[in-house]
Amino acid sequence: MIAELFAGVSTRARVLLVLLAVVMLAAPLVLDRYLVSVLILVCLAAYTGQAWNILLGFAGLLSLGHALYLGLAAYISAGLYVHFGIGPWLGVFPAVAVCVAVAALLGWLAFRFRIEGVYFALLTIAFAEVARIGFDHIGFTGGAGGFFLPVRSEDQGQWWNLRSGPTFFYYLALLLAAGAFLLCAVLRRSRLGHRWLAVREDPEAAQALGIHINRARMSALLLSAGMTGIAGVFQAFYANNLFPSQIFDISRSIDLILAPIIGGVGTLFGPILGAFVLAPLGEVLISITGAIGLNAPGTKALVFGLFLMAIIAGVPTGLWPRLASLLRLRSVGR
């Protein structure tokens, strides 16, 4: 199956891919703590970017509320750990299950009446907002005051509870990013993947061919939501604090979609490239603006907003197809 994936990929591309894998695997051996933390952000953004890309890039549905799944899974896994002592490796299952169930509800509401495009995007935002306001009022997980995971020195090294150092989190994030990439590569060539593309390009023609539009869309939505949920569990145990006003916020949803849009919607490498561009750019911006005394988060978001507008106006296919042709890879546009 893996060998099949590489059929039609040029030697040049294969060499670069192996090189990337080696560099990423070796990175924590040479980099300091801070740079590793930046790389964790890169891997996480690449992972969530792949998940979101399945929905817009493959199935043609724009979600602007993916923070919903991130937050739900984060809160559920954290709640299970703090209140019942259930570790994240077990907690991830109910967390993802709830994400999938909520996504199913959203999809059921939306697809029954052919709610698509703007209406769909809006519905996703509304769901995330309801969760944000709702979690503000749930005392069990701290409400608006935030929910905190205990950070105790005696827990350190408990990898089974995700209580570990940055290197551990880095390899976990790398595993997630690589896994999502491979999964998307497989899906892209699968029957399901072709159905998604058919529905994205022309729903009516797809239906005429016997493709069940709603089922295709629903499968993309559920998969995307479940994958984003896994990132939520990671986020909860990595950050150790959760605030409804942050994790469910619309700005979080937008953060999730920046990498694939800038890298290239619908491409396999777009989310990865986008993550590599954005996370370091964000860090650089924060340190520069912090140094000259500007409002750092505001400036970073402002620059990202301008960047987003520039990309969508000037390079609507994203940066990856450009880079791919620059590197003379065969996989142009993929």
């Binding site: 817009l56 724009l62 602007l64 495009g117 703007v118 995007a121 700005s251 937008i254 979609i257 849009i261 500007l294 409002n295 505001g298 400036t299 978001a301 402002l302 990202f304 907003g305 301008l306 960047f307 987003l308 507008m309 969508i312 106006a313 609507p316």
Partner: peptide, 24 residues
């Protein structure tokens, strides 16, 4: 003439710029 989600993303970008400019 661009796909609807492109228009949407453009205006999302504009929204981010406006709100953060006000914030600054």
């Amino acid at each position: 003439v661009r796909p609807q989600h492109d228009q949407f993303i453009l205006l999302v970008g504009l929204a981010i710029v406006l709100v953060n400019a006000l914030l600054m």
